[in-house]
Nucleic acid binder design. Structure first.
Lengths: 209, 209
DNA sequence: CGTATGCTCAAACGATCGTTTGAACCGGCC
DNA sequence: GGCCGGTTCAAACGATCGTTTGAGCATACG
């Protein structure tokens, strides 16, 4: 009972990236083999090593493609509110969460959040270093703005709370939890609900006395 | 650079279970091979299939061994406070979190939380059904007590909040986050700190207006 | 036209995986 | 001693993994 063909349009590289995102989300990085992946993409087995060099490089490229856009969008949204006197915690959280939400309008974009959560679970040092080096500055900018809005918290306390918010966020956005979308609610509306709950929850967790 | 020998005492079954817990936490269920595992345990390769039947059954046994004790302890702690008029949210959260904390006094017990978090990330249906069927009743009892203490929340709202708390909890207890134990803080003290932050955070997230 | 370049393909490579086999070993019991 | 159920052992099985190879094909340029 193998996966069906996922994509039949676009260049070979794009077809591979699309199929990789789906299969990595479903079966994990180790669990999805290059044979399943290339079959689903409708390309030859050797195409992955030809275009990406190795499976590991393909994994990095799957992340790079989405995270470049996602983080640029997050930083742009943050820049619109950062430092302003009337800015609230909700605004900053919105800047962080909304771009991830918009990703799910794209085909398979919503699956990427699940891939990201898998990367957290894998304790693979290479992957974690890659994510930290390439996208750590985003987290640092958001942390700085949280620090400005929560001056009553010392650094360790702030880091603890952000860490816990990150956990809840990763969990919820990747759809790991028990909350399942009802059949009478559209995917779009469901993710909107998720975002609203998430933001209210995070505000309470960050700013409690 | 393979793993060292993990355990040299106890029965073959116990040595396998101990090594499995360590390696599953480090490399995942797929990532840890039976050869690494049996070498670390100091037993023969065939011993896993002889004693457990298959690798999959071994995975289940790793869960069963810890979760039986963990959940019994959780339910006992819950029973001590459930239904009482003076019981607070903190008490119930304490009943849920403290037993997980005590697990880490055991050798490798703290690693089990990481194994559990991996199981969440794996979307493997067999494993998820196993966990749900065997231990779902624990979550149901805690949810009922939360419902009693938070009568102002309707069911969907309560479920959302518990789901988000679970995410933060899994994230923090398994040590996935950026918060790392400082070298001048004992493992015991660090986990105690984690629990305190977790409980205050969860209370705020559950009971906010 | 000839050739160079970029890409695709079927086939094979060596490595490693989970599992099985059958002999060897071991304690206790008749 | 002789046998026996439980356990351990080295060795092998077939399957699947990521990667490499070299021929084949298409398009572009001299």
């Amino acid at each position: 009972m193998d996966a069906l063909l996922v994509n039949s349009s676009g260049s070979t590289k794009e077809r591979i990236l699309g199929a990789a995102e789906v299969l990595f989300a479903q079966r994990g990085f180790d669990g999805a083999s290059l044979r399943q992946l290339t079959t689903a993409a409708g390309v030859n087995l050797a195409a992955v090593n030809y275009h990406f060099g190795s499976k590991e490089k393909l994994v990095e490229e799957v992340f790079r493609r989405r995270l470049d856009a996602l983080n640029a969008s997050r930083l742009a949204a943050l820049a619109r509110v950062a430092g302003a006197p009337e800015t609230t915690l909700e605004d900053v959280l919105e800047a962080y969460i909304r771009p991830a939400l918009d990703l799910s309008h794209d085909d398979n974009g919503s699956l990427f959040m699940r891939v990201l959560a898998r990367a957290f679970a894998e304790h693979d040092d290479t992957l974690r270093r890659f994510l930290s080096e390439n996208y750590g500055h985003v987290m640092r900018q958001f942390t700085a703005e949280f620090a400005r809005l929560l001056p009553q918290l010392d650094k360790p306390e702030l880091y603890w709370r952000i860490d816990l918010v990150t956990g809840a966020l990763t969990h919820a956005m990747s759809g790991f939890g028990m909350i399942q979308r009802k059949s009478d609610v559209s995917e779009r509306a469901h993710r909107e609900q998720t975002a609203q709950h998430l933001i209210r929850f995070a505000v309470a967790g960050l700013s409690h006395p």
